[in-house]
Design a protein around this nucleic acid. Structure first.
Lengths: 174, 174
DNA sequence: CCATCCATGTAAGGAGTTACATGATTGG
DNA sequence: CCAATCATGTAACTCCTTACATGGATGG
């Protein structure tokens, strides 16, 4: 049934950077959300408790200061996250949609140059297919003036994807 | 509580083009989905029954041919849809996010040139704000090599939004 | 006759939103 | 003292996905 657990990996990813409270996590989300995503407290706190139960995170022993709860990755949590980030790179997964791409990319630093390279290459492949598809749709829609808005969407998407392709190409040459 | 009912308006919008069965609606979704969205049968059929109950659509009297059900907009349904499509243009709504923009745009033809113009102008406003925001984030992130992936996302988003802005500007000059 | 497409649904559960509830701490 | 921010949660509801179930029509 419905599963993908993106929030789980987002939280684990944030905790690789540093130990945090649920409140901190929400702050980080809000600060970085413009790029792709956010989550409210009512999703974050229950998720943290689920991650605790699964032993992917643990509470930092706190110095009786407040009801603040600081979380830390367990070694299991860290390895689960590391597997996840590399997962779309496996040969049997041939396409890498924008959301998955962006979510992985978000947690890669200069030190992950090897993973980054493979990720960009895979994304390029998908982009090429998507661009070809959109070109076909565009050719079809131009003869329908009553779908002019849709034509504009297709033009916009094409421009965006071509721009992405160019950007990743440039990046790989560096 | 959670409300926005995008699927409702998507279906109403498709039915403005022509009368359709649930199956047809799904086909159209699949054909046009690349641009932004899709929905499975298990969402479409229940939604059609809800729309029936709300008298926004009605069954076409069918000639006892099969269990096929062809739906048609009611006058209420048509006016609800027409209100919805113009809704983000009201002065009290100041921002027009990409999803809302694209969904409305999808149903505008050459004959809606006036609405289209206003929609593009409003979207330009939002884009300018978003671009300014991203420029700030970019300036901040460049000093963090461990967030290099995030930097790439920001660069990509900036390029996309700037490209959009240029496209709508060109479109408005026509 | 058999596979594919046409055609309509239900069930179960996860994902995400909005509203509600509570209380401590900090700065002006 | 009062507002804003810090801090953690529950409840209710809608949205969305995956799996399951059923059967007719069409074409090779």
């Amino acid at each position: 049934m419905a599963r993908s657990n993106t929030l789980q990996y987002m939280i684990l990813g944030l905790l690789t950077r540093q130990d945090m409270t649920g409140y901190d996590i929400k702050q980080t989300f809000d600060k970085e959300k413009a790029e792709f995503w956010t989550a409210p407290f009512s999703q974050i706190y229950p998720e943290l408790n689920r991650l605790l139960k699964k032993d992917l995170i643990q509470l930092l022993p706190t110095i009786q200061e407040s009801r603040k709860k600081t979380y830390q990755l367990t070694t299991t949590g860290r390895s689960i996250f590391n597997e996840w980030i590399k997962q779309p790179l496996s040969p049997e997964i041939t396409t890498l949609d924008n959301d998955n791409f962006v979510l992985r990319l978000h947690f890669l630093g200069k030190e992950h140059a090897d993973i980054l390279q493979k990720l960009l290459k895979k994304r390029q492949q998908t982009l090429k297919v998507e661009i070809a598809q959109l070109e076909l749709e565009l050719a079809e829609v131009v003869s329908h003036p009553e779908q002019y808005g849709r034509e504009l969407i297709i033009r916009k998407e094409l421009a965006n994807k071509k721009s992405d392709l160019k950007l990743w190409k440039k990046e790989l040459l560096k």
